[in-house]
């Protein structure tokens, strides 16, 4: 029996995303951030996570989605990636779900732009689609702007 994967889910606008729950260290509310000059818009700033410096990534920017005024401040999904701990800023947190493997499909061919690199699969859930985000690739970029 292969173990079913669990996904921590969250929303960016209407899009529903999931990341491997084992990669998620914790989910916390919005934190005060220190802006990092000269960094790309994908980096929102730095947060103090119990004495450690964590880079907060604006996931909307990273996925090239338009920025919008949110009714509530974004939430932090803290990811423990290979290169260190990183926070992904998302609009809203969803449940942890365990979708059946049968629902998984490769991302459609017509997916374009950055999404093509970062989305590794799509779960066809009953009421919507869950996009599986590759956390390692999402947090791997050079934030320096030349």
């Amino acid at each position: 029996m292969n173990e079913q994967k669990q996904y921590c889910t969250f929303y960016l606008g209407n899009l529903f995303f999931g990341v491997d729950v084992l990669k998620v260290q914790e989910v916390i509310l919005f934190q005060d951030m220190t802006h990092v000059p000269l960094s790309s818009p994908s980096v929102s700033g730095l947060i103090n996570l119990r004495g450690e410096t964590v880079t907060a990534i604006d996931l909307r920017q990273r996925l090239e989605l338009p920025s919008v005024e949110l009714p509530e401040p974004p939430k932090n999904v803290i990811i423990s990636a290979e290169g260190g701990t990183v926070s992904l800023l998302v609009d809203e947190i969803g449940d942890v779900i365990e979708p059946s493997e049968e629902l998984l499909e490769a991302p459609p061919e017509n997916l374009s732009g950055i999404a093509k690199d970062l989305i590794t699969g799509v779960y066809k859930l009953n009421n919507n689609l869950m996009l599986v985000l590759d956390t390692e690739r999402t947090v791997e970029f050079d934030a320096a702007i030349s």
């Binding site: 005060d32 220190t34 990092v36 000269l38 103090n48 050079d142 934030a143």
Partner: peptide, 22 residues
């Protein structure tokens, strides 16, 4: 600093100040 910010040559790291901010 996180890996993403290593490329910014102007910063060597970060620190946490007495008030808890970075």
């Amino acid at each position: 600093l996180g890996k993403q910010l290593k490329g910014i040559s102007c910063f060597a790291g970060s620190t946490i100040m007495g008030d808890g901010k970075l």
